[in-house]
Design a binder for these strands. Structure first.
Lengths: 346, 346
DNA sequence: ATCTGCCATACAAACGATTGCACAATGTAC
DNA sequence: GTACATTGTGCAATCGTTTGTATGGCAGAT
């Protein structure tokens, strides 16, 4: 059915090993037969069976990528970075979504191990349930790297943004714009280390100016809470009904910010005059919203690129170094927070 | 290093074949030894080597998924559908992005074939360059299915939305809302069959009411044109400067619609009073924009689910039927087109 | 006691590539 | 003419499973 080495060997009257060597440019076979073999392979439509190869050489040249889901833009930007670099290096990417469930995450990892991926890039579920699994992998020297967030209990390589700095930058900007009653809208993953870093940046910024905190984190009361954006919308509506009206919102990510923005508009507030809103991530759409959204830029595809590069070189070398890389966030000021002139906003 | 069948066999004093059969619940091995084997496997941390298995049984239980890129929300929703059903059926998904380049698409497909995927779900590049490749695959009975769009020259299974009907619905709605000078903003892929279907829906709707067309399609003049959203923004700005102002925009997808919306707002137009805008796809964010965006809903994840199901059953069975499935779009009316009361908008 | 059937298990051959080693052919130096 | 490199090629083992066929033991029927 499919063309194999044996087919080529037979049609040329040479041995399989010669064909194999020829196709791999092994200098032990003469330039002449190398040419002949390659021509025949091309003509017969030979495609190497990577499965068989892998069984022998124990390298699949496949990477695993695990994230919570593909419905929001942020993880996809990371995936894009992973896929393009992997592809450039001759690797393929096999994906899985954990849906924030540690059990699913564990299943995916073992499935990937069974498929013998050379390494895994994972945005881990925030839970201590798989800590032992991760440590087990690390103990065996299996290449694995966290992106976007990490688990402090696991001494694993990771690449994230400097979330503290980003939050500080954003909230100082709000203060600079004259906002004083600044609420922090954390999502449902408030126990995540990276979220806490952002909250720390938020509180530090307020402390520097003697302002008081107001921190709203998700509970599970909204049963059908399907998305971050709905979450931001819902909580902001409640917030605006409360006694002490905020004059600015620092949202833990852009989806929440979008929901918040929508809620404010619906409530008849003017943005940024009555209320300022800033998000986190700087997803592509922010710039094109009818009221463009200020945000903290995270280098998302760079994150994916760096992670893929690390995993691939870790998979190739006999040993690897654990890295803990913090990418630098930048403030992107747009309409949703700019109520003074741009010149003052620095 | 890694636990294999042989390790388990040795530790239990039975043969590899018995272990293999026991783990696969083969009734030819006694219930008792089956238990013993499973317990030992569990305890030793055995993970089956799917690579080796595949070499023998010629089924990887891996699906390939190819799309243009992961940067816009629409393909990711499809991927989400593919991944979840694949995962539920015990399959994994290996992904690739063609970046709208037929060469890259071809490379990805051959890479996937080399990895011996059981089938491929692809949103094809609009080009006749790979038609022969697709036909070659089909002639061999390889399971492959197009999603979102298809190539009329290739008699391959596909699942798309009824784009004609969707466009008709949307434009009739605009007319119903009193808009008369309706422009169609097609993207850069105007030669795509599915886009043409939408354009046909647009012209038919106008014909029904004796209105005249105005159809703007992308050229390559914007060198750095990076995204659909920028494209929509840019072309709408030009449009608004032109002699005959439109009073409504039918955008070929939601990203273009968002860019158009932004441009209108910047130009100081009121939406929907001065100008109406409707998109296509109904991505999640539409509902939460500061001016929420009317759109034609496409069942995106259903598309992925159906495609994955088809491919998997095609891969399992000895033969398969070619299907041509059109999902039903629905009109979702929101603020961006609603200038009469909702009751009249049906 | 022998034959038959059945059950549980073992043996061995695949699957398609890679690769260490052996070997044949050729050329070169003495 | 013999010994010895050198070069190109082939043989065969190997990776970890699955699976068709064979085998050994045991029970029941004759």
């Amino acid at each position: 059915m499919r063309v194999t080495l044996a087919d080529i060997a037979r049609s040329l009257g040479v041995s399989e090993s010669t064909v194999s060597r020829a196709l791999n440019d092994n200098p032990r076979v003469s330039r002449q037969t190398r040419m002949r073999v390659k021509a025949a392979a091309e003509e017969m439509g030979y495609i190497r069976d990577e499965i068989a190869k892998c069984l022998r050489v124990r390298q699949t040249e496949v990477l695993g990528f695990i994230t919570g889901g593909f419905t929001s833009s942020y993880p996809n930007d990371i995936l894009q970075g992973v896929e393009t670099t992997a592809s450039r290096m001759g690797y393929s990417v096999i994906v899985g979504t954990s849906r924030a469930d540690p059990q699913v995450e564990r299943r995916l990892i073992t499935a990937f191990l069974g498929r013998k991926v050379d390494g895994i890039v994972v945005s881990p579920v925030v839970s201590d349930e798989n800590v032992d699994l991760y440590n087990w992998l690390l103990a065996r020297g299996f290449p694995i790297i966290f992106v976007d967030r990490h688990l402090p209990e696991v001494k694993c390589s990771y690449i994230t943004t400097d979330n503290y700095k980003g939050a500080l930058l954003g909230v100082l900007h709000l203060i600079d714009q004259g906002y004083r009653r600044i609420v922090c809208l954390a999502g449902t993953e408030a126990h995540c280390f990276e979220v806490q870093e952002r909250v720390r940046g938020y509180t530090d910024a307020l402390d520097q100016h003697g302002l008081s905190y107001r921190y709203i984190q998700g509970d599970q009361s909204i049963d059908e809470c399907p998305t971050h954006v709905f979450y931001g919308y819902h909580y902001t509506l409640n917030l605006l009904k409360s006694a002490e009206m905020p004059d600015a919102i620092f949202a833990i990510n852009d989806e929440i910010a979008l929901g918040a923005l929508r809620a404010c508009v619906e409530a008849g507030l003017r943005v940024p005059e009555d209320i300022g809103i800033i998000g986190f991530d700087n997803v592509m759409l922010d710039a094109y919203l009818p009221i463009s959204l200020s945000s903290i830029h995270q280098p998302k595809s760079e994150m994916g690129i760096a992670a893929a590069n690390w995993v691939i070189s870790a998979a190739k070398g006999p040993h690897y170094d654990v890295i803990e890389q913090l990418l630098t966030p930048t403030l992107v000021v747009r309409e949703s927070t700019l109520r003074k002139g741009l010149n003052q906003s620095r």
